[in-house]
Amino acid sequence: MFEAKISQGSVLKKLVEALKELVTEGNIDVSPSGMSLQAMDSSHVCLVSLVLRDDGFDHFRCDRNMPMGIHFANFSKILKCAGNDDAITLKAEDNADQLTLMFESSNQDRISDFDLKLMSIESEHLGIPDQDYSAEIKMPASEYQRIVRDLTSIGDTVLISATKEGIKFSTSGDVGTANVTLRHNTTSEKQEEHTIIDLKEPVALTFALRYLKNFSNATALAPQVKLSLTKDLPIVVEYQVGELGNIRFYLAPKIDD
């Protein structure tokens, strides 16, 4: 059987909110080492990879590896019934066709349970190679959210260029053009306000803004976001989910026809 308890249930709520617009359904794979998900959006332009480690949970038990086919809009409906301060326990028997969610209020005076119907989903698992990137940029997640929101109101695609001057986001559309440049900045006492640009070589890539904006639905999960860029490869937009794990979004670039 599978059983996992997370005292900070709001994390699970935020994770599903971060995913559900991008991914309709997918398999959450459970194993003794934790929970993971790999899913593409319907147009196969981007991929979401979620890893939650067993030791990040308050309690984790999984006797047998199994995929749990989840419809994320339905998962979200149930998680919306959990209070922000609730502890959430997930439970499923081996080869179950449902996932039980139990919500406990922080003073344990209210307990509720819901069953989510599981689906059988055929999915291919892609191998994502470990690699070095030409540029890695850490910035406040709220800053990333603001940039992609602002630029989406101007254009459809963004040219992201990383040089020793900083990281520049450029777009254009019917309205006109927009450029936002962030410079390396570690002056704040608060680390989450830093912008750290780790540049091995200059790189410039073009991406569809609507996906980058969609990734910012994960903003509530982490104070900082990391962007990783290499020529002719997908951008990686990564949020650390506390001690629990991380969520990574991979977006394929626009390439010359």
Partner: peptide, 14 residues
């Protein structure tokens, strides 16, 4: 002119 690449083409098994 640029076109949108497919994400699967960048990873093994895609």
């Amino acid at each position: 002119q640029q076109k949108q690449a497919n994400i699967g083409s960048f990873f093994t098994g895609g």
